[in-house]
Design a protein around this nucleic acid. Structure first.
Lengths: 342, 342
DNA sequence: GAAATTCTTCGAAGCGCTTCGACGATGGAC
DNA sequence: GTCCATCGTCGAAGCGCTTCGAAGAATTTC
């Protein structure tokens, strides 16, 4: 491992000149800089991480706490962890993985030892103990997800309320006026993250604003068939359906509707909103308003970097504007002229 | 952040005494040590990571390269990453996550900057470029998985050949003498990791040793039904079946057999071997010889720590002895007295 | 009781880097 | 030609820790 001293000797300059030439923090004559760069390249020099950290008081490392509950969706989880890591690399940070049973300890440790410059919190619960800890830590923390009490925290998440409204507006635009919502089971609603509730509120507010006929189903289980049957019982003439469910439910909804003589998108138009999975491999792909890991993670990491580098104090909550992916599961109602030009 | 100097002052001793009292690398009078420990606890002292790293030339960090191919099983992947992290924490190491497009660069960087003390390589391909790189790096590297050329590397994996033999022996012990193997599709066999091939070899060797009637199916697709049909065509009277497949195939095999009038375990006894998934939620749970992430990762991390700490040179390949999980999918053949006492 | 050991503790030298202050050189202003 | 700014570079002081060598105290040995 070449050191900065080797580079200085090779280039015939002092150590500090090498440092400034490489960091650009002071102006160095161009010919000198070139000589330094050349020497560094020749020796394959990379600055020692700990020495740099010690001197600059910055580790270029973010810690990521990714708890793994028994019912965690590993796939979604991995996606978020990876997206955080990628986004961090883009800003020249590495990511340290903190596992569940070590989450609190890990956060304290990485902050107290200056191991990490900042912390990203994934899979946030309504009453997340990591929120309490974050308030005490001197180290910047960003939450991907929103706990009940956001006081003093910095949180990023999809704007679930806007996503719900967007789903309704799309169905409306297609002339769908009797709209159903299949949400998460009651138990999921209570426990954990509050995003299903935020989605629900958004849905209710929008239907109220527009005065739309609607019905909400919070099925007893994670099974699509039962949810659909419950829906059709309550509202037999439903013609628009919003899904804020897991993948199992969403993937079976089309078949369940078919069993009862309804086809997608003609009889019932369907949108899956606030979901992490892709519907492209479904028998009938569904339009989605995705919970986009990339968007959330990039935003969160960028904010964290800003906090670390500028000491900025950021707003408590940042909501990400939802996007719409059209896969053909929404069609104009019979006799309805679509608003959009084709 | 309290420093070691604060602790020294608080305890009324010198800095080096604090260091030795905390590390135990030299004997310190008990009363003095107690005073130091007390002072450290009172101040909530934790040694600064980079200072410690710089001085001791050891970061207590392992890098983990976890590539994410389009066809990667996220779930299995996350499990391995998490298990590595847990095992590392048990030995007082943290883990840095290196993502795919940054794998080679990341390995170089974490080695060259002394960011990491060692590297764990996950999801190893037959011709993995990371193997080539590992040979050039001064930094210890352990592979979880086995590339074609293991020269100069340290690799850990399940003993797939032994797993295949174990499956056959179990079926034999139950009086099953006409044994089928459903393996991975041909294309998977060629590409990627060589474990399906190792499994195949183990299978072939064992059936040859025992002179058993057998048939091997490498289905054209990842579909259970077709594989079973191909199997029954070749060997209509099959009474023992070994699966070295993905979860989709394994979960549908029982139903496919039923379609052709065979029941599990009576007509055909089935074992899923070298698999990462659980069969407990299958309609009929299957006996498994698991590819145990925990076992592989602990072994790998322990070896890596040993290499880092003692500079030991370890054997190229470490094979993990397979274990057997009985879930009732193997039953004695009609008229066959089981060997084991019950 | 002096010499030889052993036990405890301390001081200081780094580890490799960043960064501040300073110094000589260069050039423009007058 | 002198005075000031500016530019380009250097030296040195840390950052907080580990660890080596050594010094003094305590204990043992004969």
């Amino acid at each position: 491992m070449a050191t900065i001293e080797d580079v200085a000797r090779e280039a015939g300059v002092s150590i500090s000149t090498v440092s400034y030439a490489l960091s650009g923090k002071r102006s160095i004559k161009e010919t000198t800089r070139d000589r330094v760069l050349e020497a560094a390249a020749k020796l394959g020099y990379l600055p020692n991480a700990s020495a740099r950290t010690l001197a600059a008081n910055r580790s270029q490392i973010f810690a990521v706490t990714a708890p793994l509950h028994p019912d965690t969706d590993h796939s979604a989880h991995m996606t978020f962890a990876m997206e955080v890591t990628k986004a961090a690399r883009d800003l020249d940070y590495d990511t340290l993985l903190l596992v569940h049973n070590d989450a609190l300890e890990g956060m304290k440790r990485s902050a107290a030892t200056s191991l990490a410059d900042g912390i990203v919190v994934l899979d946030v619960d309504a009453h997340d103990p990591r929120a309490t800890l974050a308030r005490q830590l001197a180290c910047p923390v960003v939450f991907i997800g929103i706990p009940d009490d956001t006081a003093g925290l910095v949180c990023v998440d999809l704007d679930f309320e806007a996503a719900a409204a967007m789903a309704i507006d799309r169905l409306m635009a297609a002339g769908r006026t009797r709209i159903g919502l299949i949400s998460h089971p009651e138990e999921t609603l209570q426990r954990e993250s509050n995003f299903p509730l935020r989605f629900l509120h958004g849905f209710e507010r929008r239907v109220a604003e527009l005065g739309i006929e609607h019905v909400e189903i919070t099925p007893p289980t994670h099974r699509g068939l039962e949810a659909v049957e419950q829906l059709l019982e309550t509202m037999p003439d439903v013609d628009g359906l919003v899904l804020n469910t897991n993948m199992d439910v969403a993937s079976s909804v089309t078949a369940a509707l078919a069993l009862h003589g309804r086809s997608v998108p003609t009889d019932v138009s369907v949108i899956a909103a606030g979901v992490t999975f892709s519907t492209l491999r479904f028998p009938v792909p569904l339009d989605t308003i995705p919970l986009d890991a990339h968007a959330s993670c990039s935003a969160a990491v960028e904010m964290l970097a800003r906090m670390v580098e500028t000491g900025a104090t950021l707003p408590e909550t940042t909501l990400i504007t939802p996007a719409y992916n059209d896969h053909g599961s929404v069609a104009p109602a019979y006799g309805h002229a679509t608003i959009q030009a084709r």
